Simulated scan of single mutants.
Amino acid sequence: MKYAIRLFPILFFLAGCVGLVRLSFENGRLVEQIDQLEAELGGMSIEDSDRVYMVEIETPDVPPEIASHVERVWQFRCYLPPGYSFMRTSGGGRVAKEGIYSSGGFSTSWSMPAPKAIHSLLTLCTRRKDGRFEAFYSFGGSSGTSSWNRFDPGRLDNTLVVQKLVSSDQGPRSFNQDTILPVLKIYDPSGSETVEVDGETLTTYPGGLILLCPKSRESELHQLRKGETPTEFDPSMVATEAGS
């Protein structure tokens, strides 16, 4: 009887060891899955659920049938807090090196606030089509194409200036919900022209941009796009590019 009493603890201990090994194995597989997911979508830790988070995906995952039709691709993983109401604006014409001044055609769409937080993938592609330069976006289940008519499609090369709100080299960034977010701006530095706007001289370039603007900043966005300075303007209303 005493041998049987000793046997039960031994069997229980062995079963616990087997379970621990199995759990360690499953944890290892889970870590691998998390690492793969972060490699695909970008690692991003949400420390404040009321802020907007964004991180660039270093190697965008684009199907071959799409990749063969585009010149360049950028992808960003975005976290949008509950109740965040924003507008997505994209288009091209002429842009300034700093700020969000732009002249030319633009398309805009509003996103209704969601009761829960949203993790979404923002994809931006550029291509040449019929002698024009086009920018395609896909974000949160919607998509669209903007024709950047003043952009020379023959200059789709490394001479272009690309300004990104976030960079894979620097990792994720977070922003408060009242900040205008210029996600990506592209321009040709060789095509500079000066214009007089709101009593000031601006140097502009052929190019385009895509940005997210919160509902609270709609009026400021319209003024800033025209090169005007809103009343009581605070530079922190507009997020700056990564590294600046």
Score class of each variant (00 low, 15 high):
Leu184Tyr: 06
Pro172Ala: 14
Val183Trp: 01
Leu14Gln: 15
Leu41Ala: 02
Met237Gly: 13
Ala96Tyr: 04
Arg88Gln: 10
His69Ser: 07
Cys125Glu: 14
Arg22Asp: 07
Leu11Trp: 02
Val166Gly: 12
Arg77Pro: 04
Ala96Gly: 02
Val21Thr: 12
Val62Pro: 01
Pro81Ile: 03
Gly131Arg: 15
Val95Pro: 05
Cys17Ala: 03
Phe76Ile: 02
Pro214Glu: 07
Phe233Gly: 03
Leu7Val: 11
Glu241Ile: 05
Glu220Asp: 08
Pro115Trp: 03
Thr240Asp: 11
Asn149Val: 00
Asp152Ser: 12
Glu200Tyr: 01
Ile5Leu: 15
Arg88Phe: 15
Tyr137Lys: 08
Tyr53Cys: 04
Leu20Val: 01
Pro189Met: 00
Gly42Met: 07
Ala114Leu: 13
Gln170Leu: 11
Ile118Leu: 05
Ala242Pro: 12
Val183Gln: 03
Val62Gly: 02
Ser168Glu: 05
Glu228Gln: 09
Glu38Pro: 03
Arg225Thr: 12
Ser236Cys: 04
Arg173Ile: 11
Tyr101Arg: 11
Glu193Gly: 05
Arg128Gln: 05
Ser143Val: 04
Glu56Lys: 06
Leu124Gly: 04
Gln223Gly: 09
Ser103Arg: 01
Lys2His: 08
Thr203Asp: 02
Thr145Asp: 05
Val73Lys: 06
Glu32His: 14
Leu181Phe: 08
Glu32Asp: 14
Thr89Asp: 00
Ala15Gly: 10
Lys129Trp: 04
Phe13Asp: 09
Asp35Gly: 09
Arg72Pro: 01
Phe106Asp: 11
Gln223Ser: 07
Ser219Arg: 13
Ser90Arg: 05
Glu47Lys: 11
Val70Lys: 03
Tyr84Thr: 09
Gly42Trp: 01
Ser49Asn: 13
Asn158Lys: 13
Ser167Ile: 10
Asp157Cys: 00
Phe106Tyr: 03
Gln223Ala: 10
Gly92Val: 01
Ser143Pro: 01
Ala114Phe: 12
Val18Arg: 10
Ile186His: 04
Thr229Gly: 05
Gln223Leu: 09
Phe86Thr: 12
Pro214Leu: 10
Leu11Val: 13
Arg6Phe: 14
Val197Gln: 09
Lys116Trp: 15
Ser143Tyr: 03
Lys185Ile: 07
Glu196Ser: 11
Ser168Phe: 07
Asp48Asn: 04
Glu232Arg: 15
Thr123Ser: 15
Leu14Arg: 10
His119Asp: 12
Thr123Phe: 04
Pro182Arg: 11
Pro9Asn: 14
Val55His: 03
Ser85Phe: 06
Leu224Trp: 02
Gly93Ser: 08
Ala114Lys: 12
Ser120Phe: 06
Asp152Phe: 00
Lys226Ile: 03
Met87Pro: 02
